[in-house]
Write a protein that binds this DNA or RNA. Structure first.
Lengths: 361, 361
DNA sequence: TTGTAGGCGTTATCAA
DNA sequence: TTGATAACGCCTACAA
């Protein structure tokens, strides 16, 4: 298997020792000069010049492996997603985050190592050591809700620098960054309230992911502020639906309207099921937003609905989220502790919300 | 600056020595066991098991830098793109290529390191050492046309395994993989010819990128076969347009038709300008493909036109391109030389081409 | 101001 | 079958 071959391709590459010989100084001096002389040690301008000249003549470039070995760090940040890093389907959720991760990592001088849950090195889904590969990097970012708790906990306990993207409180000691769904959802409700809406219904998926829970929390909090505690505690203010959302029908929408509801809010999820169902039901009922009722989306619309009228709601700053994760990780690496975990979502005015019908805004 | 802090954050990262202690063997033995025992040295099944267990317990992972320093390889493949690997403008995205790169790399047991071109560490655009970081990996893939020649040449001259994705002949000795635009473009012309078209016009951008040149070359070659050398040499058979393509107007289309042209071919580019212009002009002229004329696209339609009727043309197998690049790189690593550099593009029947009007196919 | 020496974590060559 | 020992190229006290 080409065991013997012309491997060791390092061949003709000059090392500091050769530069030293050519310049007539010691290898240490070369390291000092070429290393930028961090410790502010004084050296002859002469020596400096000779070394530089010799290095240029030989075309010297430092060996990154050696450099990193000596420095006890490799300037590598890991990115681990339990599913493939480049899934064909999930493209929409992770890609924008990676954009931010890459930018911030580059800005801070780190390169990225991509680990996939289903990679080789004997790292299958069930493998209890699957996560260990990330130790190769100085620290690692974790994406997705399916990262196994126990393995992650082991890394954290060992003091390995890790940051989870997405709120993750259950795992004690694990740093995370997440979108501030609570505040953003509350803001949407406040805007609707400012338009005159009092009875508002939230359509969410039947799932206890933090992302869903946080949205409901923000929704209820703001509702309590705007419409009083009774409105917020009303169980019918929040509807849990399944995927597909068979219960969100034109009839259901009409019923609600008849009961005085004037605005509907849906959460964004991977599938976009809640928003899609609401959208479809409203259209099928022959109703139109914002004239007959107001609609808002707690997140961004799925790609196939993006062409439609932009929904009122908020945008998750995914790139910013990635960048924030990198910042938190590098803060850990340099000994400083946590930076801000919550990233604010910007309100998106959109055009699916307006004053309730029969009322002048 | 965090210069002094509790750096040396290698902290808990276990090394072979600790595994050795735990397993009650020498560090050498650990290396032997964990290294896969390449030299076929015999060792007790007992020892082996103990070492493996200890390594797993400690979560041992070899240090890539040390590995590379000592053995000149670390099972890491680099991916370097001079611009961001994850650009915001989706159309420029390398994403589909990376999908293939990741899959093939995983299949061959390599992890991926993403080197971002715009990284500091003193690695700005002008920095002559920006590319040097890649030497940490066993070999590297290069993406995009803006990889600086001189630095890349240095790597190649030093014998560093590198593969460029996209044809790159100018750089002597640099291996590359690319889509076979020549053959694919020729095939499209042949199909059109088989339908009965004789006068065909190619709309391309005014750019001398290999991708454009190759398409024209294939176009002219096939045209010579099908319609004779006169047709192929006719300067009006190829139109160079700029971005935006103001010259591709409804009037221009009609003119051409009046002169006997029955089919138009556009090249795919980053911007999609040529195809978009053609598309728009034809529609504005009140014409329709394939009834009034035939259209073909040398590539895939831009995202915003993907919903329209699928154009006749070919698909660039981007994932396959990535996989081919990895194969070529690993071939270099194992001493074997070049594998096939050209990746075939599949013909896409689409539905914008048919027999010329007034003729029975 | 410069040089000497030791170590970073692995692999590889020999002895034992 | 296993264990010293010497690289690999660079960094960094510390000594001169």
């Amino acid at each position: 298997m080409a065991e013997k071959g012309p491997s060791r391709q390092r061949r003709g590459r000059p090392r500091q020792a050769e530069v030293a010989r050519l310049a007539g100084v010691s290898q240490t001096t070369v390291s000092l000069v070429l290393g930028g002389n961090k410790q502010g040690i004084a050296l002859h301008e002469d020596t400096r010049a000779r070394v530089l000249a010799a290095a240029r003549e030989l075309g010297y470039v430092p060996d990154p492996a050696a450099r990193r070995l000596a420095a006890a760090r490799n300037n590598l940040l890991g990115v681990f997603s339990f599913t493939a890093t480049f899934p064909t389907a999930v493209e929409h959720s992770y890609y924008p985050i990676l954009v931010g991760v890459e930018q911030e990592a580059a800005a801070q001088g780190y390169d990225l190592v991509l680990f996939t849950g289903s990679s080789p090195g004997g790292a299958q889904a069930g493998d209890p050591g699957a996560l260990n590969r990330v130790r190769l990097a100085d620290g690692c970012l974790f994406l997705g809700r399916h990262v196994p708790d126990d393995q992650l906990r082991k890394l954290v306990v060992d003091g390995y620098p890790a940051v989870h993207i997405g709120r993750r409180d259950e795992l004690e000691g694990l740093a995370w960054v997440g979108a501030d769904y609570v505040a953003a959802s509350a803001e949407v409700v406040r805007r609707l309230s400012a338009l005159g809406h009092r009875r508002i219904v939230l359509v969410r998926e039947d799932d206890d992911a933090p992302a869903s829970t946080d949205r409901e929390h923000g929704f209820r909090t703001a509702l309590a502020e705007c419409a009083g505690p009774r409105a917020a505690d009303d169980p019918s203010a929040v509807v849990r639906t399944t995927h597909p959302a068979d219960d969100i029908t034109p009839g259901w929408v009409r019923d609600r309207l008849a009961q005085g509801v004037t605005a509907f809010v849906a959460e964004e999820t991977d599938s976009g099921a809640a928003w899609r169902a609401l959208h479809t039901a409203v259209a099928a009922a022959g109703l139109d937003a914002p004239d007959d009722l107001s609609l808002a989306l707690l997140g961004s619309p799925p790609a196939d609905l993006a062409a439609a009228r932009p929904p009122t709601g908020f945008d998750i700053p995914r790139a910013e989220l990635g960048a924030a994760a990198v910042r938190m990780l590098t803060a850990q690496l340099s000994g400083e502790e946590h930076t801000e975990p919550l990233v604010a979502c910007g309100f998106r005015a959109g055009s699916t919300a307006g004053p309730p019908p029969g009322r002048t805004g």
